[in-house]
C-alpha cells in the first residue's frame, strides 16, 4: 500500500470516509453511525499510514500487520477504509446491509469480503482472536503486528478480561489493543449504564502498557500509534486508551448515545454531508 504521511491528506481521506459512513447508513436506513464516525481517524491512520498491508487480500496475512475489529457494529467505517484502500470497489459500499451483499450488518468472513479475517458483532471476542493471531505470528517468526479495536461499552463483557489477563502472562508484545473511549453505550452514558471506572488503571494492574490518544485529532492519532509501536517487543502488551467523540465530524450526532444505532433521514443526511468535504469522490 502507498503510505500517506501528510496529516492534511489523511484528514481529507477521513472526511471522505465519514461521508461514506453516513451515506451507507442512510442508504439502508440502518446501522451504527456514531461509533463509526468516532473511530474514523484511527482507521484512516492505520490503513493509510501505520499498517503494513496489501489490498491484494490474502487470508493468512503473512508479512502483514493485521487489524481485528471487535466492536463489529461500526462496520461502516471498516468497509469504507477497506474500499478506499482498494480491497474492493467503492461502489460496493452502496450494498451495505442489503440482501445478497458481502457488506453484512456486522463484518463476516462468510461472504468472502476482502479484508475481513474474522466475524464480529457479538461483543467481547476480538481481543482473544487478535491474541491468537499474534501468537501465530510469533510461531511463524513474522515480525508484523496485530491491532485490535474494542469499544468501551464492550469492556462490560467478561471475555475481554480473560484476554486482558492472558496477554501479559504470555508476554504478547506484538499486539496493540485499542479501546474507543467515547463514554457512550446503547442505553446511555457508560458511567450510568456500567461504569468502566479507572479503565486504564485496570489494564495497568493486569500488566499492560498504556498509551493515551486523542482519537479525533489526526496528528495525535498518528503520533500515538507510533508511540505504541515503539513499546512493542518489550515482553508486555500495549493498549491505547483512545478518547473519541461518538459521531465526530457531524455536529448534531456528537456528544450523545442517541446516534449509536440510528440512521439519518434525507434531511439529516444533507445536513451531515454539508459538514464533510467530498475529497475522493462519493461512490
Amino acid at each position: 500500500m502507498v503510505q500517506v504521511t501528510d496529516i492534511v491528506q489523511l484528514t481529507k481521506i477521513a472526511s471522505q470516509v465519514r461521508r461514506d459512513i453516513v451515506r451507507q447508513v442512510h442508504g439502508c436506513q440502518s446501522g451504527h453511525p456514531g461509533g463509526s464516525l468516532g473511530c474514523t481517524d484511527l482507521l484512516v491512520a492505520l490503513f493509510f499510514n501505520i499498517m503494513k498491508h496489501s489490498n491484494q487480500f490474502n487470508m493468512k496475512g503473512e508479512g502483514e500487520d493485521l487489524f481485528f475489529l471487535s466492536n463489529g457494529h461500526i462496520s461502516p467505517v471498516l468497509y469504507s477504509v477497506l474500499a478506499r484502500s482498494g480491497y474492493f470497489e467503492v461502489s460496493e459500499l452502496a450494498t451495505f446491509r442489503k440482501l445478497n451483499s458481502r457488506l453484512q450488518g456486522h463484518p463476516t468472513t462468510h461472504e468472502h469480503l476482502p479484508g475481513i479475517r474474522m466475524s464480529a458483532g457479538s461483543l467481547g471476542q476480538g481481543l482473544s482472536v487478535a491474541i491468537g493471531a499474534a501468537i501465530s505470528k510469533k510461531l511463524k517468526k513474522d515480525s508484523c503486528l496485530v491491532y485490535a479495536l474494542m469499544g468501551d461499552g464492550e469492556q462490560n463483557e467478561g471475555q475481554i478480561w480473560e484476554a486482558v489477563q492472558f496477554a501479559p502472562h504470555h508476554k504478547i508484545d506484538n499486539l496493540i489493543a485499542i479501546v474507543d473511549v467515547n463514554g457512550q453505550q446503547i442505553d446511555g452514558p457508560t458511567e450510568l449504564v456500567m461504569s468502566n471506572r479507572n479503565l486504564a488503571n485496570k489494564y495497568s494492574a493486569f500488566g499492560w502498557q498504556i498509551v493515551y490518544m486523542d482519537g479525533n485529532n489526526m496528528a495525535d492519532v498518528v503520533t500515538s500509534l507510533h508511540t505504541a509501536k515503539e513499546l512493542c517487543g518489550q515482553g508486555v502488551p500495549v493498549v491505547i486508551m483512545m478518547k473519541t467523540e461518538m459521531g465526530a465530524g457531524v455536529d448534531f450526532m456528537m456528544g450523545s448515545h442517541k446516534w449509536h444505532g440510528v440512521a439519518p433521514n434525507d434531511e439529516q443526511l444533507l445536513l451531515a454531508l454539508a459538514q464533510l468535504e467530498e475529497t475522493l469522490g462519493d461512490y
Binding site: Q125, S128, I135, D142, E162
Partner: peptide
C-alpha cells in the same frame, strides 16, 4: 487458564495463518 471463552477466540486467531 480457567478461561474457556478466551481459549476459543485464541484458537480461532491461531488458525488464520494456517
Amino acid at each position: 487458564g480457567i478461561a474457556e471463552a478466551n481459549m476459543i477466540g485464541i484458537a480461532a486467531g491461531l488458525s488464520i495463518a494456517g
